[in-house]
Amino acid sequence: MEGLNIVMKEACAKGIFTGTRIPNSNLTLSHLFYADDALFVGEWIEENINNLARILRCFHVSSGLKVNFNKSRVFGIGVEKQEITSLVEPLGCKPSDLPFTYLGVPVGANRWIGDSTLKTSFPEAYKLERYKHCKISDRLQNGDLIWDWKSAPRTLESVSETALLVSRISDFQTVQGNDKWVCTLASDGVFHVGRLRKKIDQWNLPTVETTLKWIHEIPLKVTCFMWRAKLERIPTACALLKRGIQITSPICSYCENAEEDTTHVLFRCSMAVRVWEWVLSWCNLPNIHFESVEEMLAFTTQWGSCEMKRRVLISICYGTTWFLWKARCDWVFKKLRTSPAKVVDSIKSTVFLWMKYRRKHCTFQWIDWCINPFI
């Protein structure tokens, strides 16, 4: 989208496309981009529409990115729908009416009374209006409604809607000047991102996200595996079934007691339970039991007061999940059944090598490490 942004700026600078000048400022608005959503704004002239179609075709040829015209719409402000229909053919879009929603924000919705448009609130009265695109100022003068209807209200619905509309605007007072946006977060009515950020922080919204630590001592592939496990993205039997991949059975092939998902493989399988018992006892944490990746991450990131020891515990826990997954894959693909004791030995030796050769000024000794990693 950055390429299209540059193209539109260049087109406006050379007069190929004419944007809309914002009142009371020197700014001209021609386009708004967010992710893969685009909104083009310009003067309603045939040359503008044809040039925009040419710009989009050139952008498609040069970048390979194509606009989905089936989902695109063209809106004309103060223009009859027949004229919109006749001019949108070069773009290949469908004509539509205001209001519409862009990124969840209503655009063109005249909500000066209530929470919906007058067209929605008073549909029968709207049908009687001769000029559908009239402004409120055309119908409201000195506090009185000046009607321009095809015929007087006769049905019960139109009469009742007219009475309700009159009652709603009885206390409404117009002010001189142009319409403007007012931010209620500040007394001066001016929007600032910092004020919005402060307001959000004051809500103290609870967070359920746990932090995944990216530590230098841990190989990147192991941390990436933990990240995928946290997101339930490792290819367990249940995950493969959800992706539409046919497998023999979703039951864990190691213990054959439950369906094989991320939590089962890494924490609830008989192999995982025994390995975690031995590893946590080795770390002098015999009464700790993890039931999920989130629970393990929450505990390790908050454990203890020494940052260096906390990094060691995180490395050990990441290494444990890594070797549990490796043991599972060895059984599934190679039919090699690794014992829990051998898995624990691999965890101790491998994590020791991580600490020894990936940490600066490491003072760990193998004999002490085998007794307790925090000595």
Rank of each mutant, 00 (worst) to 15 (best):
L56S: 03
E2C: 10
L185I: 10
S315H: 02
H60A: 15
D171T: 06
T85D: 09
W322Q: 02
E161V: 12
W278V: 13
E43F: 14
G64R: 10
T117Q: 03
Y357G: 10
D115V: 05
R139D: 12
W149F: 14
L164N: 12
P235A: 11
M8L: 09
P95Q: 06
S137F: 15
K132Y: 04
I247F: 09
L220P: 04
I288H: 00
A186Q: 12
E295L: 07
L205W: 14
S158E: 15
F299R: 01
N110K: 14
T321E: 07
V190S: 12
I347V: 14
S86N: 12
G92H: 02
A272Y: 06
N257S: 13
I77S: 08
P153R: 02
H361C: 09
V293G: 08
T363L: 11
V208D: 12
K132F: 05
I234A: 03
I45L: 14
G319V: 07
V273Y: 00
A258L: 06
S346F: 09
I371S: 13
F374P: 05
M296E: 04
G244Q: 07
F122K: 01
L103N: 03
K334D: 15
L336F: 07
I367P: 01
G76R: 02
L56V: 07
G114R: 04
S96D: 15
K180F: 12
A229R: 03
I234M: 06
G319D: 01
H216M: 07
W322M: 01
V190F: 05
L266Q: 00
W366D: 09
Q302S: 13
K180V: 14
M308D: 15
K230T: 11
E307Q: 14
L103F: 10
N26C: 08
V273R: 00
C252G: 01
R154S: 13
F122E: 00
S116V: 12
W203G: 05
C93V: 11
P373I: 07
T18R: 15
L313R: 04
L118F: 02
A327E: 08
D171V: 01
T248V: 08
V159Y: 00
V41H: 08
A229L: 06
P340D: 09
P250S: 11
T300R: 00
A186R: 15
T363F: 15
A53E: 04
N257L: 11
R168P: 01
R243Y: 04
V166H: 14
P95Y: 03
T321N: 11
G108L: 04
I84L: 12
L91G: 03
A11P: 06
L240Y: 01
P99E: 05
P153H: 00
A35N: 05
L313S: 11
L87H: 11
C12Y: 03
I314G: 07
E259R: 00
F40I: 04
V190H: 09
D188M: 04
I375Q: 11
